[in-house]
């Protein structure tokens, strides 16, 4: 699983998150230790409120941890405090997000939605759009590149959102229910694509899911309950069976 790179892309040591203090304290995530390696696709399972999305937000540097250490791509980003002031730049460079509700910008057309990430990273406009068109063609939504998000079907919108997440060739891809709106065939295509990206870009893909159709496609599955990783299976059938 480690390949040629002996270092994990995501390292969580004692990572925890709580909200409030005293009697009102709610522990969303309790002391998670986790290493995610380049080239692997992992799934986060668990009931609602178990801490899956909190873990995803912590890895994506969207929410500040309460304790522990977080290292991304060999760089310690949180240890008692944020060690990098420009978290958005960090996200732009290293993390790709795929949202459950697509979150495409309604005032941009499909190709602009994808090219925006590259534009923000400083790519030339022509290069940004060339890369956007390449990804959209690959995801079979190239014919909708001039369409506004409001005119896309759920499946098309999700593929555009995936194209946007992949545009900057991030090494950490975080996906929150990426196949929830897709049929079995499309869900399989999306997972194949994420697998391909993980392998080709030496990236790690973390997927929060309830979708039983895709449970067999993960290298590892983590089952969370009450803010803890309750179980881990390198063979998906161990948890889902």
């Amino acid at each position: 699983m480690t390949g040629d790179n002996p270092r994990p892309l995501v390292e969580c040591r004692g990572l925890a998150k709580h909200y409030g203090e005293g009697e009102t304290r709610v522990d969303a995530l309790r002391t998670v230790d986790l290493d995610l390696w380049p080239g692997e696709v992992v799934g986060l399972l668990g009931p609602s409120g178990s801490g899956k999305t909190t873990l995803l937000n912590l890895i994506g540097c969207i929410v500040e941890p309460s304790a522990g250490t977080l290292r991304l791509d060999g760089e310690t980003v949180w240890e008692g405090k944020w060690l990098r002031p420009d978290l958005r730049r960090l996200r732009l460079e290293k993390v790709g997000f795929i949202f459950q509700f697509h979150n495409l910008l309604p005032f941009l057309d499909v190709s602009e939605n994808v090219a925006l990430v590259l534009d923000m990273a400083g790519a030339a406009t022509t290069d940004a759009f060339a890369r956007a068109h390449e990804l959209l063609d690959y995801l079979e939504v190239g014919h909708r590149k001039a369409a506004k998000p409001s005119s896309l079907s759920g499946g098309e919108a999700q593929r555009v959102a995936i194209a946007r997440a992949l545009a900057n060739r991030p090494r950490i891809i975080l996906a929150d229910e990426p196949t929830a709106a897709l049929d079995g065939e499309r869900a399989g295509i999306v997972m194949d694509l994420l697998r391909k990206v993980a392998v080709e870009q030496s990236a790690t893909v973390v997927v929060v899911t309830h979708d039983e159709k895709i449970l067999g496609r993960f290298d590892r599955l983590f089952h969370l309950r009450d803010g803890r990783i309750e179980d881990m299976a390198s063979r998906p059938g161990d948890l889902t069976g």
Partner: peptide
């Protein structure tokens, strides 16, 4: 929501 998305994907 769009502004939050922009922040999330790295917009300065």
């Amino acid at each position: 929501r769009e502004i939050a998305t922009l922040k999330l994907i790295g917009a300065p």
